[in-house]
Design a protein around this nucleic acid. Structure first.
Length: 344
DNA sequence: AAATCGGGGAG
DNA sequence: CTCCCAGATTT
C-alpha cells in the first residue's frame, strides 16, 4: 500500500498546483537554465540562488556563451555561492556540450549524468523539467519527505537507507504530470515538511504519513550519528563533615539528572574551595583529586574528577536544596548511577 | 558549536 | 565500495 499508493502522487500534484511555486526564474523550457539552476541549488537555498542565477544568465545567456567564457569570468559570476568546484564543473560541462553534443543537451538521465557536476538526482531533475522524463530525484528535501511519510528508519547518509529511499522514490512516480509532481516534492520539503517544526496541518499526504500519525516528525529522518561524542568534564565534590556525613545538593529540575540528589559540581579543582565558601557558606579543605571516572551518556561522554574534602568548623545551616547525609541513608536516595558508584 | 546540502575524488 | 571534503547558511 505504501510503496505503490497512486494517491500519494495525485495528492502532491494537486497540492503543487494550488500551493507550490510557479514563478521561479528557472521554471522555463530552456534546458540550459534548468541545468544551471539545479547545479546552483545543489548546496544553496532558493532565496540565495535567485540573484546569482539572474546575474549568471545575463552574463552567459546560453551554453555557447558559457563554454567560450574564461574560467575567471565564470568563477567571478559564482563568487559568493561557495563550492566553487561546481562552477569549474559547469564550465567544463558547457564545453563538453558544445564539443560533443552540438551545443544541445542530451535528454536521458543516463547521458546527463556523464556531465561533470551532474549526479543521479540532478540528472533526473534536468530530465524531468526539461524533457518530461519519468525519473526520480532524491535531494535533501525529498529524503526528508519520504523518510517521514514512509517511516524509514536510519540516517539517510547511510548507504542502505539511501538505497531504500531511492527505491521508494522510483516506486512513487506518477505515470503523468511528472514535472508538477517533482516540483511538488521539492516545494513540500522546503515549505511544509521542514526539518524543524514541519507544518503538518498543511500537508497533502498527512493522512498516511507515518511520522505525522506517530508524532515522530522530530525523529525522522534520523540525524547523522555523531562520530565524536562530545566530551564534557566536571569536578564532583565529596565533602565530609566531622561525623562522616556527605554533602549533597538537589539538581535543578530540568537538564541532566534533573531533580536528583547529587554531589556539588565545580568547573575545576582550583575553584572548588571558593565555590563552597561562596555558594554553600562552608570552608572546605580539599585533598588531591581522585582518578577520573568516565561515564557515557547517549549524547556525550562525561569525565568526572572526584575531589574529596572535609569541612572545618561548624556546619552552616543549609537551604532545602542541600543537605548532609549519612552513607546508609544515601542508599535510599534518588542518585545518578555514576554518583552512587562514586560514593562506594 | 554543529548540522546541513549533492557530487567528486581519494583511499 | 566507503569515507571525507567543500563553504555558506541555519539552528
Amino acid at each position: 500500500m505504501t510503496a505503490s499508493n497512486p494517491l500519494f502522487a495525485d495528492r502532491l500534484i494537486a497540492w503543487q498546483e494550488q500551493y507550490g511555486r510557479h514563478d521561479l526564474p528557472w521554471q522555463v523550457s530552456d534546458p540550459y537554465r534548468i541545468w544551471l539552476s539545479e547545479v546552483m541549488l545543489q548546496q544553496t537555498q532558493v532565496g540565495t540562488v535567485i540573484p546569482y542565477f539572474l546575474n549568471f544568465i545575463a552574463r552567459f545567456p546560453d551554453v555557447a556563451a558559457l563554454a567560450s567564457a574564461s574560467p575567471d569570468d565564470v568563477l567571478a559570476a559564482w563568487s559568493g555561492l561557495g563550492y566553487y568546484s561546481r562552477a569549474r564543473n559547469l564550465h567544463r560541462a558547457a564545453q563538453m556540450l558544445v564539443n560533443s553534443h552540438g551545443g544541445h543537451f542530451p535528454q536521458a538521465p543516463e547521458a546527463l549524468i556523464e556531465l561533470p557536476g551532474v549526479g543521479r538526482s540532478t540528472a533526473a531533475a534536468i530530465a524531468v523539467f526539461a524533457f518530461g522524463a519519468r525519473a526520480a530525484i532524491l535531494d535533501g528535501n525529498v529524503k526528508r519527505v519520504l523518510a517521514r511519510w514512509a517511516g524509514i528508519e536510519g540516517w539517510p547518509g547511510e548507504k542502505r537507507v539511501e538505497n531504500t529511499l531511492w527505491q521508494l522514490a522510483e516506486s512513487l512516480l506518477p505515470s503523468s504530470g511528472i514535472a508538477g509532481y517533482t516540483q511538488g516534492l521539492m516545494d513540500l520539503g522546503s515549505q511544509v515538511c521542514t526539518r524543524t517544526r514541519p507544518c503538518c496541518g498543511a500537508c497533502p499526504v498527512k493522512e498516511d504519513c507515518v511520522a505525522c500519525i506517530a508524532g515522530r516528525q522530530s525523529q525522522l529522518p534520523a540525524p547523522k550519528p555523531r562520530k565524536t561524542i562530545p566530551e564534557r568534564h566536571v569536578v564532583l565534590l565529596l565533602i565530609r563533615d566531622a561525623r562522616g556525613r556527605i554533602f549533597l545538593e538537589r539538581r535543578p529540575p530540568a537538564g541532566i539528572w534533573g531533580g536528583l540528589w547529587s554531589l556539588p559540581e565545580a568547573q575545576d579543582t582550583l575553584s572548588a574551595a571558593s565555590l563552597c565558601a561562596c555558594r554553600y557558606g562552608v570552608n572546605v579543605d580539599f585533598d588531591p583529586p581522585l582518578p577520573d571516572v568516565r561515564h557515557t551518556f547517549t549524547h556525550f561522554h562525561l569525565a568526572i574528577t572526584p575531589l574529596p574534602g572535609a569541612v572545618n568548623g561548624a556546619v552552616v545551616v543549609t537551604d532545602s536544596g542541600t543537605g548532609w547525609f549519612d552513607l546508609v541513608d544515601i542508599e535510599t536516595l534518588g542518585l545518578p548511577a555514576p554518583v552512587r558508584r562514586l560514593l562506594k
